[in-house]
Design a binder for these strands. Structure first.
Lengths: 127, 127
DNA sequence: CTCACACATTGACGAACATCTATATTGACA
DNA sequence: TGTCAATATAGATGTTCGTCAATGTGTGAG
């Protein structure tokens, strides 16, 4: 029950805006600053932030974004992370699936690099 | 095993940087752009992003940040969210505990507002 | 004092997650 | 072809999370 319709008491300042949003479902840049963020857009955004909601993945991103070569061999990510190889592989997969990192297989090794455009996209959703 | 030390094969370009970071543990603004983000900083950051990793909470933030009055009564958040009152209360608590929203009790009602500085802080951590 | 309402807390339950060990897959080289 | 190294996948396990119904807490009206 909205406060505006309740009791005989003084209502707490007119009810919340219900302005119908223009937010197209598949739009490029949903943001928290948009009125009435749709459930669909919110779910997509949440998936992005969920990928950032783990210390191991944040540290992976840190290692990748600050790598002077712009890319790092997966084999050089295991030890600094202090987790098992399968765990690191798992986290890299999560980051890859949400588009935060790209990978390229060269011979035996797989090289990972950050995708700054995707980071910017998520940053944009916060402001 | 780092690729640099393995086999007789051509090693994949010198091993990753191991530069000791200056990142003070309790520092204000840890970021993914910092080299060797510490586990402690990463965990703190991850907690922040975890609060953003849910559609319901993102929609709550959207409702709060775009409220023209700058604040919204909790009673006006339940229906637009399409979740039960206890669930909405739970999500507001999560947002409150990570500092993304502030609350003020006035009489029967509780008014919530977004804390843009905190949002900016998380945004800063991405760039 | 008592009732009705706003909001928070509790407890339960299923889903999702982080991590590990073990194993499969892929590519290089002898 | 067979072996070894780098990654990925599978399966298992303990933990965290989102949700709701039920209940508790506090506040204003009568």
């Amino acid at each position: 029950m909205a406060a505006t319709a309740s009791r005989t008491t003084t209502s707490p300042r007119g009810s919340a805006k219900v302005a119908v949003p223009v937010t197209a479902a598949g739009e490029c840049c949903a943001s928290v600053r948009e009125p009435e963020l749709s459930e669909v857009d919110a779910t997509a955004l949440a998936r992005g932030f969920a990928a950032l909601a783990d210390p191991a993945r944040l540290r992976l991103l840190s290692l990748l974004t600050t790598a002077e070569a712009g890319e790092v061999c997966a084999c050089d990510l295991v030890e600094p992370l202090g987790r098992s190889q399968p765990t690191v592989s798992h986290h890299l997969k999560v980051l890859f699936e949400v588009g935060l990192v790209a990978r390229e297989k060269r011979g035996i090794w797989v090289w990972y690099r950050a995708v700054p455009e995707r980071l910017d996209q998520l940053r944009g959703a916060l402001g």
